[in-house]
């Protein structure tokens, strides 16, 4: 019997919960004021980033401190081709995703030879190299200053209809659609055989190895999915908001992904999205009062790791809803 069949009673609950989240997000756009409408668009894209991060951290137990490089690969993969080569939006989007996938494979082959603390430091250092590269090739990237995509490069024909990415409503619904797709990809992945293997590796890698799993290949697959989803978020960000700068590849963004996941609940499908939503608004509110809004980030990290390592949804899953994926 496959795991899905065992839990067939729960899978209806799970699917309705996820559908409800999507429907609520869809309806929200009609009531939100302009500022929050834009904020929600950003949150949904960052949620894709965090959900991608969670595949590696929450399910596989590999804590990366360098996911900003995958986000950056998507951002620059889409942005540079659109800016310099004049590629259309779908083509640029695809190139961003491919750039992310290639980078994840490369990084995986190097960094996955280590685990634990060494993995954290190696990913952090490689991400630092990626950040420095965006500064070094300033002729193409304009470094910190960044590039701004032109209006013309932000609309495309899709089955005869013109999709204009400067329209807030288009941006909102595109992000929502991508979030929905991400959710279903991750749900399918973690409920399936691979997901079980990932958790087995997280809980005890030598045991998984002994049971005959090629743990390196499975971890590489997890990193590939994780990095590619992060790159998708980056590519979306570049094309929807038309700005590509090296600030998106700083370690700050890697830590944000970690924080969002920790807050929402590592190892749950919806957790990172919830964490992104809460943390984004928390930082947003804090930054109205002080320039030192990163203080909130720091305190949240310490608090979570000390008292709340399972995060919000992780705790709910543990206490009340064991069926939560």
């Amino acid at each position: 019997m496959t795991p899905a069949k065992i839990n067939s009673g729960n899978s209806r609950k799970i699917i309705s919960l996820h559908l409800a989240v999507i429907v609520i997000l869809f309806l929200l756009q009609f009531v939100l004021p302009e500022y929050h409408h834009l904020t929600m668009t950003r949150i949904m894209i960052l949620a894709i980033f965090a959900m991608g991060y969670n595949v590696l951290f929450g399910y596989t137990g590999l804590l990366s401190l360098g996911h900003a490089m995958f986000f950056g690969a998507g951002l620059y993969g889409a942005g540079l081709t659109a800016y310099h080569l004049g590629w259309s939006v779908p083509l640029a989007f695809a190139s961003g995703i491919i750039a992310g996938a290639l980078l994840s494979l490369l990084v995986g082959c190097i960094a996955l030879r280590t685990t634990g603390v060494a993995f954290m430091i190696v990913t952090m250092m490689l991400a630092q190299v990626a950040y420095l590269a965006t500064l070094y090739f300033t002729r193409y990237t304009r470094g910190d200053e960044g590039l701004v995509l032109s209006q013309a490069s932000r609309s495309f024909e899709f089955f005869g209809a013109t999709v204009d990415l400067t329209n807030p409503s288009t941006r909102y619904n595109l992000s929502l659609a991508l979030l929905g797709i991400t959710m279903s990809i991750i749900y399918r992945l973690v409920r399936g055989k691979t997901g079980r293997a990932l958790v087995a590796i997280r809980e005890n890698e030598p045991r998984a190895q002994m049971l005959g799993y090629n743990t390196f290949a499975i971890k590489l697959k997890a990193l590939l999915v994780s990095g590619t989803l992060s790159a998708t978020a980056g590519a979306t960000f570049a094309l929807l908001f038309a700005y590509i700068g090296s600030s998106f590849t700083t370690i700050q963004y890697s830590i944000d992904a970690l924080l969002f996941t920790l807050l929402g609940g590592p190892g749950t499908v919806l957790g990172p999205a919830l964490g992104t939503f809460l943390m984004f608004y928390l930082v947003d509110i804090a930054s109205q009062y002080t320039t030192a809004y990163l203080l909130v980030t720091g305190l949240a990290l310490i608090f979570l790791v000390l008292y709340f390592p399972k995060g919000i949804l992780g705790t709910i899953k543990h206490r009340w809803l064991p069926w939560l994926p």
Partner: peptide, 13 residues
């Protein structure tokens, strides 16, 4: 490591 990242931000800010 996660906690000391938090500490980094707390001290710096």
């Amino acid at each position: 490591i996660v906690a000391t990242i938090g500490l980094l931000y707390v001290i710096q800010q």
